[in-house]
Simulated scan of single mutants.
Amino acid sequence: MQFKEIIGHHDIKEHLLQTVKDNRVSHAQLFLGPEGSGSLALAVAYAQYINCENKQLNDSCGTCSSCRKYQKLIHPDLHFSYPFFANGEKDVATSYLEEWRKAFLENPYMGLDHWRHQLDAGNKQANINIAEAHDIIKKLSLKAFEAEYKVLIMWLPEYLNTQGNALLKLIEEPPAKTLFLLVAENQDKILNTIISRTQLVKIFKLPHHDVAQYLIQEKSIPTERANEIAFIADGNIQTALNLIAEESNEYFNLLISWLRFIVTDSGLNFIRVCEEDFPKLGRENQKNFLFYAVNMLRQIVLMQQGLQNLVLLQGQELDFVKKFSEIFQLEQLEVAIELLEKTHYKVERNANPKILFLDLSLQLVLLFKYQTFPQGAQYI
């Protein structure tokens, strides 16, 4: 993986390159960025540049022996750790190394759900177990085979739990020329004892135009459709890739009819939508719909605040945003966004969609129709 293959993040790339040029490579770094932002790809490209035998000004050469092995993820001094769905207590990450290589090379922006599908793991819980922690210690105690640096890239250290304590001494005082690159999405779920031993590299979500350009140039998606997908994906390349296969954006029509039933308090109609339409979408499309709804409400907020130049919509969607922005208060929209985000969180955890969306609908009826703001409400 070379930096030039990764979408956007020009400032981050420049920072990483400069640490190598200035010989200021921290032995433990935390790449923190949202799903689909490219943080994992950046970590791999950084490791490849560090061990490149013929470094260029702005990237690894891509042709030396080290780079060729890195491109296939087969370099003997490059190690990976990641959540998996263990079939036994002795399972470690290398048990799934071939699947990991295939998944990353096909999609370096992958999220945990995509990885789960590669392993046909169903609803099994992901984790990084104590056997994996011990295996990491064993691997990194060995001398480097051929590279200057041994590198361990750990994807989603949030799944370490207390097993991470076994790695603290190694992270704080690693063998010479050993590099830890932790790639995380949620800092709050990482052990504080690990965070305190790493240098933070903050990675932000990709802007709309970078995602759209990627879809147009790399996936040959028509401009209008690319902009539509980029809007829904909200900086998440994994979500954008999930949406590519869809023939058209049906979320808008579903959102319009659902909200119409809500603001008119048409109970039988929104119950029907919750019992029939939402369950048909399936879990991934339910999550995408909620992303879309959240983004639409955020566009309405921008319109209300006089920031029309930041509204990324056109056609029917733009007309909807203009009309909606004249009807509801900012406080209502902020609460609605929070409710949608809570629902998205529960969908990720396999909550019953009929109950979940009916509860959401009832909350929105109170909010939009009767202007009742929930105080400390308990959400499903």
Rank of each mutant, 00 (worst) to 15 (best):
E224C: 04
S325Q: 11
K177T: 08
E172Y: 02
Q118P: 08
L140M: 11
M303R: 09
D359V: 00
F261D: 13
F368S: 01
I128S: 02
G376R: 08
V183C: 07
K143I: 04
D91Y: 04
L340S: 01
L318A: 03
L140Y: 06
A293L: 07
T193E: 14
Y49L: 10
F231L: 07
V301P: 00
E334N: 02
V44Y: 07
K189D: 15
T63P: 15
F328G: 03
Y96D: 04
N129I: 01
K13Y: 09
V365S: 05
E132R: 02
Q213C: 04
Q187W: 09
T63I: 08
T63C: 11
A212S: 11
N54C: 06
N23P: 01
F145R: 09
K219P: 03
T264K: 11
V263W: 09
L358F: 06
P353Q: 11
S257A: 08
T63D: 10
A226N: 11
Q316L: 05
E158L: 15
E35S: 09
A293Y: 03
I256T: 14
L17S: 03
F368M: 03
I50S: 13
I6F: 06
I221T: 05
Q163R: 04
N295H: 12
I256G: 01
K169R: 12
L241S: 12
L182A: 04
A45L: 13
A28P: 12
D113N: 10
H134C: 09
R260P: 00
T343W: 00
F320L: 13
I262H: 05
E132F: 05
I7T: 15
D120P: 03
Q286R: 09
H10C: 07
L78H: 11
F80S: 08
S257H: 10
S95R: 04
P207V: 08
S325A: 15
K323W: 12
Q187G: 05
S266I: 07
L362H: 10
R116Q: 14
I128M: 03
V321T: 15
D11N: 13
E341T: 14
F291P: 00
L191C: 09
D77E: 07
L73E: 10
D234E: 15
G122K: 12
Q71C: 05
L17N: 03
N161Q: 14
I300C: 13
L243W: 13
L356F: 03
A133L: 03
I244R: 05
D11W: 12
Y159S: 03
A176L: 13
Q238G: 04
A41N: 08
L339S: 01
N309H: 06
T162Q: 13
T162N: 13
P353S: 08
A233T: 01
Q378P: 05
I216A: 05
L297R: 04
D359K: 00
I203E: 12
S39N: 14
D59P: 02
P83K: 02
G8C: 13
E89C: 03
E173H: 06
N350V: 12
F270D: 00
L241A: 10
S248C: 13
E53L: 14
A293M: 06
Y292S: 00
L330M: 15
Y149A: 07
K55I: 02
